[in-house]
Amino acid sequence: MNNLIIKTEGLAKVFKETTYGGLKQKTIVALDNLHCEVFQGEVFAFLGPNGAGKTTTIKLLTRLIFPTRGRVWLFGKENVDHTAMKKVGYLPEQPNLYGYLTGKEFLNFIAQIFGLDKQVRRKRIDVLIERVGLSERVMHLIRNYSRGMVQRLGLAQALINDPSLLILDEPMASLDPVGRKDFRDLILELKNQGKTIFFSSHILSDAEMIADRIGILNRGKLVSVGKLDDLSHSQTQPVEVTFIVDSSQISQIDLVKENVIVQGNRVLVRLDDKEALSSLLRQIDKWGGRLESIIPQRKSLEDYFMTEVRK
């Protein structure tokens, strides 16, 4: 896990937009001073609300746009020309593919750009078509495909060169639940093959299920990066305490200014951090209550994400 596959240093992108017919120029900082590292074999999820700079980062990695400041390294070499892209598979956000080609023609075209010879092309295309579940439609024109089918074909083209690094921009956005499940399985399969996967998403549950590490981007800045467990634990952690207490004492429980649920003489209290726990335990003892359970609550990625982007 110590081989650096992606490294960015002070990466920034500023767009200039002209309005009022070119009379007024507006500067938009899409990405600001991004320092990020992704290691071999890991699944890295890049999360953030719309306009956070996720797609800008991905376009900078794939050289579709050029940085205003900062540098990018792929596979340990500075990404100054297209050579590193030989080992990269890229799926754009909601890809638009050539509607006048059939799925098979399109994959063949992409394979030709990678310089694959005819036999390898044919073999790989057949395997990938099967893998992404497009066997029945592969001879049809892409313009007749549904969004989900285009997404699957887009994924197939990203895998055509058997890449070491996969860069996927919102890969699950236009897939139905079955498609998302297939996609997650595929990502895990690719991870098991030793591939590195960098993907952006706003579907947090998917990221939570498959990512080894996450980075949260907000307004062009990377606000946090790390393993989900570490990030969650770095925050105050909620605790649920259940205890039995004599019904005569229950009226006093309002004194505990936390979430409280009372069912008969059973009380459930949710505390927002462990610090408040010792004082509650003393209180229970004072009331003559009996402690039933203390359960630490794992913060969901969504909770954490919302906390970070609202800061």
Binding site: H82, I113, G115
Partner: peptide, 12 residues
């Protein structure tokens, strides 16, 4: 934006 798929490949 069909160009994204092509221009991100190892092609000048």
């Amino acid at each position: 934006k069909t160009i994204y798929v092509i221009a991100s490949k190892p092609i000048n």
